[in-house]
Amino acid sequence: MAIAKKKDRPGGIPEASGAELLNYYRKMLLLRRFEEKAGQMYGMGLIGGFCHLYIGQEAVATGIQSALGPGDAVITGYRCHAHMLLAGSDPKAIMAELTGRAGGVSKGKGGSMHMFNRAGNFYGGHGIVGAQVALGAGLAFAHWYRGNDRVSVSYFGDGASNQGQVFESFNMAALWKLPAIFVIENNQYAMGTSQQRSTAVRDLYRRGEAFGLEGLQVDGMDVVAVKATADEAVAHCRAGQGPIVLEVLTYRYRGHSMSDPAKYRSKEEVARVRAERDPIERVRDRLIEAKHSDDEALKEIDKELKGIINDAAEFAQSSPEPEASELYTDVYVA
């Protein structure tokens, strides 16, 4: 029986090519610039309700998405802007969803936490902590039922990993050998409660052990390592070996949501992670060290991305509010 293990990498992780690194850099920077703008717009009162930013965690979704192929399904909780961008949704439509406008991906009816992209195989955007894990097992079930080799990736946090339905899902996924990758984005805080205060055994990659699930753990601030580990998880599922747990050690720089001043941790702790482990800076350093790129070229990318984000912000403010007639649409499929 497979048991959870911390993956030994005798040869280390193979370095990515210049093209791959540039691709990661670009994607992660897009996520960051988008979230920074969203935070700014929230502060200006243009975005309402809850708004959970992904800043600091960019390498997780970027690395894992890079390991997936067409038809692989993805689902997550309410911290979903990055997953939408990586699923190929238009930044304009995502930002307009945050502002609750007609041009939003969910026509303004879902908001920050509820966005979906069927064509991009992204299934949301769910607000109840842990629900996406059972739903994600259901997406894997659909692949299994149809007999294809596609996988399903369910993202959830260290907080959600204590929900009962997570274990129910592990059990069924193991029982039926579903192609499910359970990604625990361990950012160390369940809202304001640190792992030390919420979780009896903190090796979350071992969370599936009781069900015979193999578990991998990876530094989630290193996109190359995340991608390499995700490749292994995907291969495991595609080979019909059933589900796998992937713990990704990460950190969020901002509060749990925009309304959280994050007083449960020190400013020094955040500053230290930013200075020493920032996923974007790490790729930037590698690009420059290996002479795959230079300051000027990277600045050019940043400028281009800021342009895309500014256009999105502009669209999100100029797009009209939904028509009153939309109130009663999409309650039922006709």
Partner: peptide, 17 residues
């Protein structure tokens, strides 16, 4: 298994696909 929340979620996820 006797796991109503889990299999209701699995069924719902399968329906979404």
């Amino acid at each position: 298994p006797i796991t109503e929340m889990g299999f209701a979620g699995v069924g719902t996820g399968a329906a979404m696909m």
